[in-house]
Amino acid sequence: MSAFNAIGEERDIDRDEFTPEIEPQATWCPGCGDFGVLKALKQAMPEVGRNPEETLLVTGIGCSGKLSSYFRSYGFHSIHGRSLPVARAAKMANPDLEVIAAGGDGDGYGIGGNHFMHTARENHDMTYIVFDNEIFGLTKGQTSPTSPKGHKSKTQPHGSAKQPIRPLSLALTSGASYVARTAAVNPNQAKEILTEAMEHDGFAHVDFLTQCPTWNKDAKQYVPYIDVQDSDDYDFDITDRGEASEMMQEAENKLYEGEVLTGRFYKDSDRPSYQQEKQATGDMPEEPLAERYFDDDYEWERSYDLLDRHK
């Protein structure tokens, strides 16, 4: 029994509970892929069985960062690129929370790239959704880390000379234990993947292709998509790091050739989460730290008892 009443409630959860009491009108453009993420997430929550008040959604900055405005739960709309450090600390302070972080490709693979690597390496039990639209949308159409080579914009007028980031490969190399790609145009798969990601005990990375009809008109609408699990053309073992890696490389290459490969790319169910690793070495308490402050009977340690070493 948690000190927090919303945690561990035994009841059916309805997707409408995740719609804010007064729903702010979304600032996303008509046809934006971001609506697909919101919908898929609301649909996944009842599947996972977590209610709004035991869920913490931490977002970054950009169109994607607005997700926390349109999704009813405890929310933290943080700063550009920093959703992961805020989210993972909240998870450590109270592992009973369902913690989700979300942001765009500039937010997660660009300015927050360092945090992406390290959070994946630590394998926190949380879900990270990256809205990947290959563009900076809210700042009006600049080249992003996943924009294809040669992409022209006001900040790269001669075409980007850079190879795009390989998000799936980066997640795998860094240590994520669940890596998937889905697309806003594929709502059923998106719901299933988000459900799996949240149920996974470790760092689950979902590269979520979200078409930007306003600033990335030249880009694909991510149709037709291919689910690599359903396709006869692809056969690989998602629990095999080597095969997963090859498949990721192919999916990343093909995206820029107009072929949208989605699905689960890697899953390691055996790797202990960061919390389990830390608890095993006595580096993290067994009971959620956040609950201790509500426990009137807890005997708090005193520095006075540490003074022998100073005498």
């Binding site: 933290f76 920093r82 450090p85 805020v86 989210a87 909240a90 450590m92 302070a93 956040a290 402050y293």
Partner: peptide
């Protein structure tokens, strides 16, 4: 990250 973690932990009640 260090400062952001402190914010996250505090937000969650520590």
């Amino acid at each position: 990250a260090a400062a952001s973690l402190a914010i996250g932990a505090s937000h969650a009640g520590a």
